[in-house]
Design a protein around this nucleic acid. Structure first.
Lengths: 342, 342
DNA sequence: CTGTTAGCGCCTTCAA
DNA sequence: TTGAAGGCGCTAACAG
């Protein structure tokens, strides 16, 4: 059997309480006895049973997740992942409050951060918007000693403790590589559909995309990005207009949400006999169907569940003052084509 | 506070023991009282604290993992994943014994299965080889009531409880799609390098690959597969010879291990001025470097850690007689190109 | 069929 | 500075 606190206590010739004090680095132990206990721990190869410890402590971690009230599929999935994590949380001893804010509204987000901070949670996660009021609100939270993690979209130059999301410039580069290779020898212009260039993740995807297109595939002309506000109706209109205005358009990179609108526009193009090589983001029922029907050629995905669980792990570690292995919390960019759909 | 067994007992007007009996579906409870307890559980929204339950049970699950003693990077990673899972096992209450067997040796595997079964573990995982003695040994294990899970490579038509690995036909189809699209308008022959067509995963990848090449990209000639036994030296020789014999070879699908040898051969081809579009399997230090240098164009990966953890979850569930959500245990086929390396 | 009681491994008063 | 004792939520003998 693996050793327990009792074994350590016996080995060191002290009581359980003293062992506990040493293990949790609490004061009130003579240097000499501390060393004795540590040696006993070392000798017996003791590792504390975290589950039992948590049970005894009964500690719970109240976290707040601030999410944009978008109706796109990805945000719905993210929200669902938070809800599920919260249900799981009975085991992990976390309790997550979800706060909704209007999408792309920096002021609203900043207010929500202040309000969330007033409850003094053990940590806060937010889908960031790149704006000064938000940065200031985050700074206030850090001032108050509350750990802050950005989720999906980062807030650069801020004091957030961690960013739980994909490497968006790399996602943009990935999209460019695939689009360039899939287009092969064809020639024409390429359209870009973003949600809003005021969110850092969309900005970053666009710059990564532009960089690789310019250096590796200079033969293509990239049109200025359209901003669809991650809204299906707007996206459909913008893409439809762009396709009409540019009869030589052969490729589209959609780096935000609003896939439903994009798909509708692509279907119309197909009906008119045009095939547009398209790379989009986020796997959902719609984008999956589009992959299967060939309207999309690849979908880059970020696993919302992973992101949420990673954010929670990091917040918990920060709350406990324990270190996180950054490499382990890296969120991958998944590539899906028709043939490797899960 | 969330309700505990005490609350349920009080609400139902019974003792703790009875509540426990109901919760664990143990016999010796009158129908009427069982209903009362269940209603109390429902009413108070009780969810049992698994950590506390495990603590009280003190049960541990002894599992045996049978792994081929290959020195390729993927098997090393798989083994490492098992070792790590075992270390984590102190928390999960699992203990994993690793048994090594010679690679591609059905008789040795069958013997190892019998030997492992003699210890009456709570479950066995194996990297299967498609052969009758293995199937028979698995049948004997099932006969003895021991849960069996195949890992990475399946054993079709056997009595295994579950397969923890990727959809290999889909992996082959994915490789074909990418290869075909990357080749674009080029014309020539395509080589296939397998480890051994006696393992089901390699067989399946090859058939998925062949299917899509034949239907979607009939313009390419596919050469008969080479068998490199997942050995770097053999692979290097085979690929080198094939490249020499087929000056019009423009693509390679390597569906097994032995990437080091393949890379060496590709490097020689590059030095001689030839560029071969190459899709390989399993991300490792070598294949990553090959992606970065452009010798590989894409790498399909299965996450060894996921596979091992999934196998353990399933074995545990089988040991407990609890159901598994099949969809949740699906192992994804990861696609990596230079730009989305983790 | 049902209840009592003593733990699982750890933490935390409260005394000494 | 140290120890004794009780309890976290659940399970499992052992009695009734």
């Amino acid at each position: 059997m693996r050793p327990t606190v009792h074994d350590i206590a016996a080995e060191a010739g002290v009581s359980l309480a003293t062992v506990d004090r040493v293990m949790n680095a609490r004061p009130g132990v003579r240097e000499k006895t501390r060393v004795r206990v540590e040696q006993a721990i070392e000798k017996l190869g003791y590792v504390r049973d975290v589950a039992a410890a948590n049970l005894a402590k009964g500690r719970i971690y109240p976290f707040t997740f601030i999410l944009p009230k978008n109706d796109n599929a990805f945000m719905a999935e993210l929200r669902q992942a938070v809800v599920e994590a919260n249900e799981q949380g009975r085991v992990e001893r976390t309790r997550i409050a979800i706060v909704d804010v209007p999408a792309f509204d920096a002021e609203a987000l900043a207010s929500a951060l202040d309000a969330a901070g007033a409850d003094e949670p053990a940590g806060i996660a937010l889908v960031a918007i790149e704006a000064e009021p938000v940065r200031a609100a985050v700074a206030r939270l850090k001032e108050a000693g509350i750990p802050v993690v950005t989720l999906v979209s980062d807030l650069e130059g801020s004091e957030r403790d961690h960013y739980a999301g994909v490497d968006n410039p790399a996602a943009g580069r990935t999209a460019a590589s695939l689009l360039g290779r899939f287009l092969g020898d064809r020639r024409g212009t390429i359209g870009v559909l973003a949600g809003s260039l005021s969110v850092r993740d969309h900005q970053n995807r666009f710059s990564g995309f532009s960089e690789v297109m310019a250096t590796q595939f200079p033969q293509f002309e990239i049109l200025p990005p359209m901003e669809g506000r991650d809204d299906a109706a707007i996206a459909e209109r913008l893409v439809g207009e762009a396709l009409a205005a540019h009869p030589d358009m052969i490729g589209i990179y959609s780096l935000g949400a609003g896939n439903r609108g994009l798909i509708a526009a692509l279907q119309q193009a197909r009906d008119a006999g045009r095939e547009i090589v398209t790379i989009a983001h986020e796997l959902s029922a719609h984008s999956r169907a589009a992959l299967e029907s060939g309207l999309f050629d690849a979908v880059l995905n970020q696993d919302a569940g992973h992101e949420v669980r990673s954010a929670i792990r990091v917040l918990k570690a920060r709350a406990d003052g324990t270190p996180v292995i950054a490499a382990q919390e890296r969120i991958r960019i998944d590539i899906f084509i028709r043939d490797n759909l899960p």
